[in-house]
Every structure is written in C-alpha cells, then in structure tokens.
Design a protein around this nucleic acid. Structure first.
Lengths: 186, 186
DNA sequence: GCTTTAATAGAATGATCGTTCTACCTAGAG
DNA sequence: CTCTAGGTAGAACGATCATTCTATTAAAGC
C-alpha cells in the first residue's frame, strides 16, 4: 500500500475519533495528512468509503488484539487457568489504555449515519458487532448466549465509562466486574 | 413557557438524537417544529445554546425517573427489600425501553464537541456525569466509590448494547448482572 | 383604538461542505 | 530520452451550514 494512503488512513482515524465524522472536513484531513485532495479521491471514491476503510482497519486491529489474548501463551503458566472472559476483558482494557477515550468509533459511526438502516456504514457497524459476538461465543463455547451479551455489555460499558473517568479507572472496574461474574469455571 | 418553545425543544431532542448534532441543520429543525427560524433565535442565542437546553431538559427528566425509583413506594411491599442498585438498574431499563436506542445523548455531545475541553457543552456533559455519580453515591451510602463506578459502567454498557441488540435485550442483561453483583446487602 | 410583543415567510450573508477540474511536476521503467 | 503513473496546489462547483435582516401579521394589555 502506498505510504500516502497509509498516512491518510492513520490521520483520518485520529481526526474522526477526535472530532466526529460530520464535524471534521476533508480539507482538514488532507491538510493533516500532508497529501493533496486529489490523492484522497484517487484512493477513495468518497468520504463514506474513506470512513468505511478506516472502520475496517480498526476492526482488524481490535480483533487481532482480542485474538492474541486468548491464544495460549506457554510462557505465562499462572495465567493460563484464568477464564477466557477475564482474558478478553484484559485485552479490551489494554486496547483502551493506550488511546484517547472518545467512545466506540463503530457506534459513533452508526449514530451519525443511522437515520436510514440501509446505509453501508450502518451495515458495516452492525456486521462488526455481530462478528464480535460470534468471536466471543466461539472463544468459549461453554458460555451461554446470555453470557456473551453480558460480556459485550461490560466491554461497551468500560469504553463509555472511560469517556468521563479515564481509561485506567474504566479498565480497573471492567476487570473487577468480569472477575466476579466470570471466574474460571472449574 | 411558550408552546412554540416547547415544540422546538421536543423536536430538537428527537432530531439531535436521531441524526447527531452536526448532522442535523437548523432549517430541518425549525421545519419539523413548525416554527420560523427567527422564533428559534428569539429563544436561543445560538445552536449551541439550544443544544445545552435540550441536554439540561433531558437530564432533569432522567434524574426524575431515577429519583422516583428509589423513593419508597408503600404499595409495593415485596420489592421494598430489593437493593437500591437493582432498583436504579430497573429505572434505567425503563428509561431505555420507551425510546429509540441511539446511545447516551450526553456522551454523544461530548464526542462531537470535545476537541476542546473548555467548550460549554463539554462542561455541561462532565457536570451531568458527576451529578449522576453523586446521586448514585448518595442513594446508597453503604456502597464504595468503586461500586458507584461499577453501576455507572453497567448503565452505560446497557445503553450502548441497546444500540445493536435493542433496548429489551440490553435491559434484561443489565438487570441480570446488577442482581448478581448488587443483591441486597442483608 | 393603540401599542407592544411574538411570530411569520423568505431572502441574504459569508463560511464551509464534499466533490471535481485543471495544469503542472516528479520519479522510475523501458 | 521518453513514457507512464501518481502526486501536487489551487481554483471552482453547487449545496448546505449557522446566523441575520426585512417586512408583514396576529394577538393581547392598557
């Protein structure tokens, strides 16, 4: 991938997250990305398509982080017995900790473009949430559908709480709750 | 209060919640409100001030609902022993159940106007979250600060989960978690 | 009846929006 | 050297934004 396109995507994600999708203009985005307007339109047909690529990239990175967390790590014997849900919560906490706390970028996209449910951005977000549920379900098949939804509720709640309390506090409470609710089964 | 102003505030809240603050224009708002543009500017100095009045109204209504839930109801003897946190969770579930599921309007406002932290809208939202914490703390003084934050996390999580799963499912899981975590103390 | 107040429709303003166009430049491949 | 592909700056487009102005109307208080 062109390094210009890389710059554009990274900068776009930061600016969308910081300002919102409608609030930020393409002029500011290409300015901060140090590219020309036509370079953006050479890579993406429209602002909507840029947004969707940003979201797809972000989903890939987030899922990678969750996936890494549940992949067995032989060097960490004592944590191996930790429940899978607690490990997922820790991975989500790690995700939050390095970043600005401005909510879930996917939900924010759905909120801004959701006036009609058939909008491609909305469908992308709905797909993301479905894939996340399916991933959690498959990560621990012993858990019920209700437990899957409860972990989703906790992860979303931590992301939202971080917006007012900061990521560290939100992460701490997320892990505390997850440990009480989803301690190891055996 | 003028009935035109009432109409305007009610319509504005619905449109802001449905579309987002930047995404909806004042032309559409006055159109749907059946008022003239100058009537809006007769009541509010700017769009920002309209937004802040909408948010203040919403906070008043939400807090009223929470307050009603913990006020002792002598006709409901069997529920009187229910923990205060569970009753707050039920009140939040009731709040969600009648409404469209588009997240927390306060956090959305902060997300859209939060590029600088001194923006009046951001300060209003921060104040709202602080007041909510203080209310929960004072509603059950036996609980620790950490437990206050945990209930906040659950309420925020339910609001977010409702955006993908619907309010009924989110409400059900919120109450299930709250009952497990915060059953009555005695 | 007269005055004041609030509301009206609609145009105007200047800014910014997403998108497109033009004309020029640069670097690497053949 | 020449060709090509991708990048450049900057203007232009029509649409929409928040805000203001104008001129008119309807109702209520004295």
């Amino acid at each position: 991938m062109s390094s210009k396109k890389e710059d554009l995507l990274r900068t776009s994600e930061a600016l969308f997250y910081q300002n919102g999708f409608h609030a930020i203009g393409l002029k500011k985005i290409v300015g901060e990305s140090n590219i020309a307007m036509m370079t953006l339109y050479n890579h993406f047909a429209s602002k909507d398509e840029l947004i969707m690529e940003v979201l797809n990239r972000r989903e890939r990175q987030y899922m990678e982080q969750l996936n890494f967390a549940i992949a067995a790590d032989p060097s960490e014997r004592k944590k191996i017995s930790e429940s899978i849900y607690v490990r997922l919560a820790r991975a989500h906490a790690d995700w939050m900790n390095g970043r600005a706390a401005r909510g879930c970028l996917f939900l924010r996209a759905k909120e801004e473009y959701g006036e009609d449910a058939s909008h491609p951005i909305v469908q992308l977000v709905d797909g993301h949430k479905e894939r996340l549920k399916a991933f959690i379900q498959s990560a621990d098949s012993e858990r019920t559908t209700s437990e899957v939804l409860q972990l989703c509720l906790l992860l979303e709640g931590a992301t939202a709480l971080a917006e007012s309390e900061g990521p560290e506090i939100a992460a701490r409470e997320l892990i505390a709750i997850t440990e009480r609710l989803f301690a190891d089964l055996q």
